[in-house]
C-alpha cells in the first residue's frame, strides 16, 4: 500500500475542501477502496474519511432522503425501506456478506469499482481501466462474468453493485457537493458506459462528494431477483430489479433495471416502453425482454447471459403480476 494521510471530515464542506488538496479519495467503509489500495491499483495520497457525515434516513415528501454514510445493513433493515421499497431491501441483502454490509456505505456502494479479474491483476494483465491505452485482456480472455450491453472494444467490465440496480429502477437521485457547489443527478446518469475511456466511470467532477440519495415515492409492487453461481455470497450473473402496477388488466406502471450485464446499472427503458399500457401476459413480458436485449453483444463465454436475462425478466414480472392480481 502506498503511504497516505488520513483525516476525518466532520462536514461535507470540510470533506470537499480536504479532498481538493491533492490526489485525494473519500473513504466510506473501505471494503472496496482498502482492497484496491492494498493491490496498489488505487494510490491516494490523502484519505478523507466521510463515515462521520450524515447517516440519517429521513422521510421526505412521501419518499426517503438517505445520507451517504448510511451503512448497507441499516438501509436494508429500515422499516420504510422494508415496507415500501422491498426491491431495495432485497437488492442490498443479496449483495456481499453480512460483515461487508455492516461496513459498506451508500456512497461507497455506488462508487465501487468493477470486479473484473484482469482489472485486479496489476502485474499479469492488460487493462484499459487501470492503465489507459494498454489494451483489455478480458476481450479474448475468460469473460463469463462480463457485460453484454453497452460494451466497447476498450472495456467489457460490469458494475458489480446490487443496490444500484434497485436505485436505478426506483428513479433515485444522487445529491452531490463539490468545489462548484451542490447539484443533483439521476442515478441512471451518474455512471458512464466505457466508450473510449473506461477509466472514467462516472460523470462526477474531481473531488465531488455524494452527500445523499433521494427516493421518490413508490406505489407499485416491487422486488429484486439475483441469479448467481451459488445460493449466497457471489456476484450476479444477471439480476433484475422490477416494480409493477396493474390496473384493469393492463400494465399501468412498470420499472425495470438489470444488473450484471453492463458497465452501469442498466435501466431497461425499452422493455418498459414495450410493456406500458399493454397486457399482463407472459408473451408480452417476453416481447419486452426481447426488445431490451435486441442489441446485446455476447463475448466468448457469456452468451448465456442474454437468455438468462430474458427469462429472469419474464419470471420476475410474472411474480409481481401474480402479487398485484
Amino acid at each position: 500500500m502506498t503511504p497516505f494521510q488520513y483525516s476525518r471530515a466532520t462536514s461535507a464542506a470540510e470533506a470537499v475542501q480536504s479532498a481538493g488538496l491533492e490526489a485525494a479519495k473519500y473513504l466510506g467503509g473501505g471494503t472496496n477502496l482498502v482492497d484496491l489500495m492494498r493491490e496498489t491499483i488505487e494510490r491516494p495520497a490523502v484519505l478523507v474519511d466521510v463515515t462521520g457525515l450524515s447517516a440519517n434516513i429521513d422521510e421526505r415528501e412521501g419518499g426517503l432522503l438517505i445520507g451517504a454514510a448510511v451503512r448497507n445493513t441499516a438501509l436494508a433493515e429500515h422499516r420504510v425501506v422494508r415496507e415500501r421499497y422491498p426491491v431495495l431491501a432485497r437488492a442490498i441483502l443479496a449483495g456481499a456478506s453480512a460483515q461487508i454490509r455492516n461496513m459498506a456505505t451508500v456512497g461507497g456502494n455506488i462508487l465501487q469499482r468493477t470486479r473484473c479479474a484482469y482489472f485486479y491483476d496489476d502485474e499479469g494483465s492488460r487493462c484499459n481501466k487501470r492503465t489507459p491505452g494498454q489494451g483489455c485482456d478480458a476481450l479474448d480472455g475468460f469473460n463469463r462474468m462480463h457485460a453484454i450491453l453497452g460494451t466497447s472494444p476498450a472495456c467489457v467490465a460490469t458494475h458489480p453493485s446490487d443496490m444500484c440496480v434497485a436505485l436505478a429502477a426506483l428513479d433515485a437521485t444522487v445529491h452531490l457537493e463539490g468545489r462548484q457547489g451542490r447539484r443533483t443527478l439521476a442515478l441512471t446518469d451518474l455512471h458512464r458506459l466505457p466508450g473510449d475511456h473506461p477509466e472514467i466511470e462516472t460523470v462526477l467532477e474531481p473531488g465531488e462528494l455524494i452527500t445523499a440519495v433521494e427516493l421518490p415515492p413508490l406505489t407499485m409492487a416491487s422486488t429484486y431477483r439475483k441469479v448467481r453461481d451459488r445460493a449466497s455470497y457471489a456476484f450476479a450473473l444477471v439480476s433484475v430489479a422490477a416494480a409493477l402496477r396493474v390496473e384493469d388488466g393492463a400494465v399501468k406502471a412498470v420499472r425495470l433495471a438489470l444488473g450484471g450485464v453492463a458497465h452501469k446499472p442498466w435501466r431497461a427503458w425499452k422493455a418498459e416502453a414495450a410493456l406500458k399500457d399493454g397486457p399482463v401476459t407472459a408473451e408480452a413480458f417476453r416481447a419486452a425482454a426481447e426488445a431490451e436485449l435486441a442489441d446485446a453483444a455476447p463475448l466468448r463465454d457469456n452468451a448465456f447471459k442474454i437468455e438468462l436475462a430474458k427469462r429472469t425478466m419474464v419470471s420476475v414480472l410474472g411474480e409481481l403480476a401474480g402479487e398485484a392480481a
Binding site: 488520513y6 473513504l27 467503509g29 473501505g30 471494503t31 482498502v34 482492497d35 456478506s97 453480512a98 460483515q99 461487508i100 455492516n102 461496513m103
Partner: peptide, 8 residues
C-alpha cells in the same frame, strides 16, 4: 460483525 482485514 465486520471483517478486520478491510478495516483500517
Amino acid at each position: 460483525r465486520v471483517v478486520s482485514c478491510l478495516t483500517l
